[in-house]
């Protein structure tokens, strides 16, 4: 089974190609260049370098957010365009779930993914790191710092808590100001916070096996906050 996965939900662009149980190719670009100019050449070269063909892809996986509004639209419309050609199924993956899976199995407890949504708001999701997989504790939320700290403190009472994501260190600093003893809260190293292809592969495969794949037409972004045009409907 071949899977092409992309993630454009934050400033880096990630493209990876999988075959059954191995990563065939992985490509990431983290520069000032926008997804609109990086994504298509990256997809083109990942097929060329791995001697694979687009028509051989059995499943497309794409990060559907929350994250960069423009990035999500670029990523999802690109996948839709390719998937429609061969009626290939697609899976949409929460960008926060990718972050949680990237943390790995060594950190047992609760993983709280925190991504900066700008203007003092954060996209947040809580996962429990169990023996087999990550269990989702909350849906993807948008919270301000005080609500986020309340959430962390709530989970910290009975669990080891791991904070990950680009705003995790900010949250950790604010938490230290609020409560003196933060012995059960840990900051995940940035090495783990970088979305990993293997995490995407694992989630994509699991969604596919659980019959969560959809057609290109049904693939939708997950903004968490609805843009004006959608609210009017």
């Amino acid at each position: 089974m071949k899977i092409l996965a992309i993630d454009t939900s934050s400033s880096p662009t990630f493209v990876s190609l999988f075959n059954s149980n191995k990563i065939l190719a992985e490509f990431s670009v983290n520069t000032e260049l926008k997804h609109g100019s990086t994504l298509m050449p990256m997809i083109d070269s990942i097929f060329k370098c791995s001697s694979q063909k687009l028509r051989e892809v059995d499943l497309f996986a794409v990060s559907i957010g929350p994250g960069s509004f423009t990035g999500l639209r670029v990523g999802i419309s690109t996948i839709k365009g390719m998937a429609m050609v061969f009626s290939t199924p697609c899976v949409g993956i929460s960008s926060l779930q990718i972050l949680a899976e990237s943390v790995g199995k060594t950190m047992k407890g609760v993983v709280i993914c925190i991504v900066d949504a700008k203007c003092g708001r954060f996209w947040v999701a809580v996962f429990k790191n169990c023996t087999e997989n990550f269990l989702r504790e909350t849906k993807d939320l948008i919270l301000d710092m005080s609500k986020l700290l309340e959430l962390v403190i709530k989970y910290e009472k009975n669990n080891k808590v791991f904070l990950t994501g680009d705003a995790a260190s900010l949250c950790y600093c604010e938490l230290k100001k609020k409560i003196k003893l933060v012995s059960k809260v840990f900051l995940v190293s940035e090495d783990f916070s970088f979305n990993k292809a293997s995490a995407v592969f694992k989630i994509a495969k699991s969604l596919f096996l659980n019959e969560k794949a959809v057609s290109a037409e049904s693939l939708c972004p997950l903004y968490v906050c609805a843009p004006k045009a959608e609210k009017v409907k």
């Binding site: 926008k34 509004f69 423009t70 990035g71 906050c225 004006k228």
Partner: peptide
């Protein structure tokens, strides 16, 4: 003119600008 809230502003791509 028609952008009044944070949600509206997000959907203009304003927060996706690069440093340049």
């Amino acid at each position: 003119y028609r952008v009044k809230s944070w949600e509206d502003l997000v959907s203009t791509g304003f927060f996706d600008l690069d440093s340049e």
